[in-house]
């Protein structure tokens, strides 16, 4: 008991320390590195909270994908130091901000402690009814069976975000290739990693997406790992992002949400309603939709990392 308390306390303190470092770090690169450490520690916290799916998602998205984006950004966002220091709020402002933010945090902590006991929640119900959709993993059952609308909207939002990032491109670059071009790494650790990891990663990612319906895993996590593998190969100069005008890219992006939406609408005719799975062939249908979703999540995350088109196709 004491050991687990100590461990939790340690993880919590480290998380906070990393967060504070992220804010206080002297350089932007140091801050981003601090943030990556924060993300890894947070993954640990999620594991301690018994949320393996979330830990995986945090590691894949919160650390890996966000980390790549931030590191790419920090490299490109050079200069402008004078304007930044000119825009820094005064000492009084900072003190006031600290005081007020601290007060909000305090109120929040007290409110969390005041939450009712025993905790209301849907844990038991979700667990008991996870089988209804033919999914053994309760998180997957919630995501696919009960809160399917969230997931549908989220997948649409992802497509939307990709388009939003693309649409920031200059007019003449429309239809071109997103992101900076990386020189091909012939040797060095990056080249080695980029050659060794992706084959493994692709297998792992696919497995995690596949196994998600029964055990910890899922499309988001699996898709994120696939995207990370592609990103590694991209940064190492082995692959190039596809042109955004390419039809296959767009189809890959919309495959998941479109399949989900169509299956949902089919449910209106064949099952209990929109986003209900027809009991007769729920399992194959879910697998089909999940496969499409994995593809779309992977494509969307990778393209979000790559950014708006910057070169002609």
């Amino acid at each position: 008991m004491t050991a687990s308390w100590l461990l939790d306390g340690l993880v919590a303190a480290l998380v906070l320390g990393a967060a504070a470092w992220t804010l206080a770090a002297p350089t932007a690169v140091a801050a981003v590195v601090g943030f990556l450490g924060f993300g890894l520690l947070l993954t640990l916290a999620w594991l301690r909270l018994g949320a393996a799916e979330v830990a995986m998602a945090e590691a894949a998205i919160g650390v890996a994908a966000t980390g790549v984006i931030l590191l790419l950004a920090v490299v490109r966002l050079r200069g402008g130091a004078e304007t930044v220091s000119a825009a820094m709020p005064g000492r009084g402002m900072v003190a006031a901000a600290g005081l007020l933010a601290g007060a909000v945090g305090l109120a929040l902590a007290l409110a969390v402690l005041a939450l009712p006991d025993p905790a209301p929640g849907l844990a038991a119900e979700a667990l008991a009814r996870r089988g209804e959709a033919g999914l053994g993993n309760p998180v997957a059952a919630v995501l696919t069976g009960y809160r399917g609308l969230d997931r549908l909207l989220e997948s649409v939002a992802l497509v939307l975000a990709v388009l939003a990032v693309w649409s920031m491109a200059p007019d003449r670059r429309w239809g071109g290739i997103p992101g900076p071009r990386f020189p091909r790494q012939e040797d060095g650790p990056l080249a080695l990693l980029a050659r060794l990891l992706p084959p493994v990663g692709i297998v792992v990612g696919t497995y995690i997406a596949w196994v998600g319906s029964e055990a910890p895993g899922g499309t988001v996590q699996g898709g994120a790992i696939l995207a990370a593998m592609w990103g590694l190969a991209w940064v190492a100069g082995i692959v190039q992002p596809p042109a955004i005008a390419s039809r296959p890219v767009r189809l890959a992006l919309v495959a998941g949400p479109a399949a989900f939406l169509l299956a949902g609408l089919a449910g209106m005719a064949l099952a209990e309603g929109f986003l209900a799975w027809p009991p007769a062939f729920a399992r194959p249908l879910i697998l089909l939709v999940e496969a499409a979703m994995t593809l779309s999540v992977a494509a969307a995350l990778a393209l979000l990392v790559a950014g708006p088109p910057e070169r002609a196709a």
């Binding site: 909270l49 998602a57 929640g121 849907l122 844990a123 979700a126 009960y146 939002a157």
Partner: peptide
């Protein structure tokens, strides 16, 4: 652990 908030967090992370 309650699966509903976990599912929410996964959606939220994305």
């Amino acid at each position: 652990a309650d699966a509903v908030p976990q599912a929410i967090v996964i959606t939220g992370l994305v």
